[in-house]
């Protein structure tokens, strides 16, 4: 379970203070597939970076399975990211001089998994995201945008994280592959009890999530999902 408590991230810009995340609070049960929608620059990526311990909040706290991230030392935060978090970045952020397979194997290497085991799992994951086997050993910079996105998704799944944070995971995919990725994420949350929080502009994707949030000027509100009525995000 993820609890977000009065989360604030403020930046100084001259005399002004900007708060892309301003007093955000919500809870997500384990295994929930949730989405955040909002305009560009509304703070969606900043919120994801706070949840994924890439950045530290100005105030507030994120509690994951009862463990607070506030005040956690950097080494523990690294361990948290390695063990519990899977990122899918908007710009993929793959290592360009490595192959697709090597990129997927990287998080497993950091987790200390043996080479043969991580190689096998990496191949399975790349097959799950429908990357052609002959492209597994191809360098990232020789893959198309859509293929790179699938490799990024496979990398996020590598260590079987409890929480997947995905920034526009279907943004560069054709409709058919996008549908497949949505199915994959749904089955992960359903069958593997993985919590997935997706930032998207894709209405069809947002409509398929269990819970939908809208971030506007740093404030988060929950939208009615499927048959549920609209309620404030902060409970």
């Amino acid at each position: 379970m993820i609890e977000v408590k009065n989360l604030v991230r403020a930046f100084k810009s001259g005399d002004r203070t900007i708060k892309p995340v301003n007093d955000v609070s919500f809870e997500l049960e384990q295994g929930t597939l949730a989405s955040i929608v909002g305009k560009s620059g509304s703070g969606k990526s900043t919120l994801l970076s706070l949840l994924g311990a890439l950045d530290k909040p100005t105030s507030g706290d994120v509690v994951v399975n009862g463990v607070s991230l506030a005040g956690m030392p950097d080494g523990k935060l690294t361990e948290y990211r390695r063990r519990d978090i899977g990122f899918v970045f908007q710009q993929f952020n793959l290592i360009p001089n490595l192959s697709a397979l090597d990129n997927v194997m990287l998080p497993m290497e950091f987790a200390g998994i043996r080479k043969s085991a991580r190689s096998q799992r990496a191949r399975e994951l790349l097959e799950q995201v429908q990357l052609d086997p002959d492209k597994h050993v191809r360098r990232i910079n020789r893959l198309s945008g859509g293929e790179q996105q699938r490799v990024a998704i496979a990398r996020a799944l590598a260590n079987e994280p409890k929480l997947i944070l995905a920034d526009e995971p279907t943004g560069n995919l054709d409709e058919q592959t996008g549908e497949h990725i949505i199915e994959l994420l749904s089955s992960l949350s359903r069958d593997h009890n993985t919590t997935i929080l997706v930032v998207t502009h894709d209405r069809s994707l947002a409509n398929k999530t269990d819970r939908r949030f809208r971030l506007q000027q740093g404030k988060l509100t929950e939208e009615p999902a499927r048959n549920r009525p609209a309620v404030p995000a902060a409970v």
């Binding site: 690294t78 990122f87 952020n93 260590n159």
Partner: peptide, 16 residues
């Protein structure tokens, strides 16, 4: 810098 950030984001320890 960005690549180092990526490695840290996916759990690479500083010593690695």
């Amino acid at each position: 810098r960005r690549e180092i950030g990526v490695l840290k984001a996916i759990g690479a320890p500083n010593r690695t």
